[in-house]
């Protein structure tokens, strides 16, 4: 069940080309599995280690990108996988309803790359982390700034440009596709 906050968020996100799926904590792996390409690696930020394992269990080539390389697949170098990756999956700090944005933290150092480099980006958003507007969201990011190593990116839709005759084109340097999976609590 959606709340006004999630609805407004979803509407804004969709209006700029982002796609929205709703799921629960239990259904997350399945929802994600349905969104990613089968035959290309899926890269995860470290806090999504469990999710990566669940995808691997059902036959996906799934990796966790960390400083040291690609965890649990130690032979593979991070960049080699990154270049082949079809999807980067990242967690998030919070969402902003009024602008349709999600704040993403450093993600073990690779978060910034995982949302921008692979052609497809998936960001997982906890419904209860949605805030009304920038004024509510920014102080929270500010409070956690040290823990975030001073890194945060507000993502509002897939990468895009209007540099040719003001025609909106999605997917310039960053991902062509952005999926946001909203994870709702049971009672919600």
């Amino acid at each position: 069940m959606s709340t006004p906050l999630t609805e407004a968020f979803a509407e804004r996100m969709q209006s700029v080309g982002g796609r929205i799926s709703y799921t629960t904590a239990e259904g997350l792996a399945e929802t994600l599995g349905g969104l990613v390409e089968r035959d290309r690696p899926v890269l995860f930020t470290p806090e999504l280690r469990d999710l990566a394992r669940q995808l691997r269990d059902v036959g996906h080539e799934a990796y966790v990108g960390t400083r040291e390389g690609v965890a649990e697949q130690t032979e593979a170098a991070f960049e080699g996988v990154l270049e082949r990756a079809g999807t980067g999956v990242s967690g998030s700090l919070l969402g902003i309803s009024s602008t349709g944005s999600i704040a993403v933290g450093p993600g073990g150092g690779n978060g910034g790359l995982l949302i921008a480099f692979p052609p497809h980006s998936v960001i997982i958003l906890q419904a209860d982390s949605l805030r009304k507007n920038l004024a509510e969201a920014l102080p929270e990011v500010e409070r956690r700034f040290d823990e975030l190593d001073g890194e945060a990116v507000f993502v509002s839709g897939p990468s895009r440009t209007a540099d040719i005759e003001m025609m909106s084109v999605v997917g310039v340097h960053g991902p062509t596709g952005l999926d946001v999976i909203i994870v709702e609590g049971k009672e919600a």
Binding site: S98, T99, S101, G150, F154, V155, G157, P158, G174
Partner: peptide, 8 residues
């Protein structure tokens, strides 16, 4: 409302 990326 906000650009695709605002990076800190």
């Amino acid at each position: 409302l906000l650009t695709a990326y605002v990076s800190l």
